[in-house]
Design a protein around this nucleic acid. Structure first.
Lengths: 180, 180
DNA sequence: GGCAGCATGTAATTCGTTACATGATTCA
DNA sequence: TGAATCATGTAACGAATTACATGCTGCC
């Protein structure tokens, strides 16, 4: 049973051969926007994937005390990834600390709640500006079938999410009265 | 160090005294929309909260082999909750399986991707209808300071989220060409 | 009599984070 | 000489899921 992290790794390798280190870098940016893992988790998962014959590697020298391992998808790995892609995702429970705080916010002083949401709003607006700049670097949506379609479509999801979040923060602020 | 789950439990108890069983029920609906836990996790956490003197309980009889325990917030518990509410939430990594699949979707057959997104769209539209009905039962936003403000504000977040998701699904479908 | 709901817990396992441990290459 | 980057791994801990385990009350 390959975990979702396993498929995240396969999805990275589908775009080109990588070392564990490279995969960890991809898991920060851009994959980190929707899936993350530290390098320790990745090395462990790579061993499981190899046992399952979904990836293989070639060693190359340096740098460092051990040889580096350049991983690539096997035919079985690509087939497994392809099948997983269109299988319905299992329901993940939402865990959102800000929303939980909001649920209990009626207990708190409106002025400190205002500060909390103003900070969150600034954060979402900053990310939004960032994503908008990234979007501007595209010349329209890449065609489906191009790996860049994946990048663009996920960016588009992030844009929508940040807009929704910013708007919600603004709404909460609007409910807090006119305290300044 | 109280965990976020601990504060979720305190947030439920702030609305009234509950047994562990009742808390577990609340963690399915309505708290489950933004935080969840099974009863086994809750019973364990309640013991930690009691050790930290943030909650206390009174036993009452039946049903069942043991007496039931009705928990309530202590003064220290309420203070801790109040302080936590306005402290900035720690950044949670997003883990979104559907977006991950989208990132790898360029590998797959457009027709099966279409089915995946059509199903997801239906799911979000159903939830949206559900939330819209819940919103209609309110007579406008409750005032801040009322516990119902928490319920309404989180519902409002859910509405925005489902709308954003549905719209994104529609956009992905629009990019898949006219295959039927 | 049987089933749903109330009610509490423990155990096993997996997933994820953080810290520990090592060490060469490249650039300033 | 020193810092950043490349590169791989193990260990310890905490968070979360699932399964196991028990048994009364109230309703049909």
């Amino acid at each position: 049973m390959t975990s979702t992290l396993g498929f995240a790794i396969l999805a990275v390798l589908a775009r080109g051969d990588r070392t564990g280190y490279d995969i960890a870098a991809a898991m920060r940016r851009p994959v980190g926007y929707f899936w993350t893992a530290g390098h320790s988790q990745i090395h462990g998962e790579l061993q499981k994937l190899r046992t399952a014959c979904l990836v293989e590697f070639e060693t190359a020298h340096g740098p460092g005390p051990q040889d580096k391992k350049v991983y690539r998808l096997t035919a079985a790995g690509e087939a497994a990834l392809r099948e997983w892609v269109t299988a319905p995702p299992r329901e993940r429970v939402e865990r959102d600390e800000l929303v939980l705080k909001t649920y209990a916010s009626w207990l708190a002083d409106p002025e400190t709640v205002r500060r909390l949401f103003a900070d969150q709003l600034a954060l979402h607006e900053a990310r939004l500006a960032d994503y908008e700049q990234a979007e501007a670097s595209y010349d329209g949506p890449p065609p489906f079938g191009d790996p860049r379609f994946g990048n663009y479509a996920t960016l588009r999801c992030g844009l929508g999410y940040e807009r929704h979040r910013a708007e919600w923060c603004r709404w909460v602020l609007s409910q807090l009265g006119d305290g300044g």
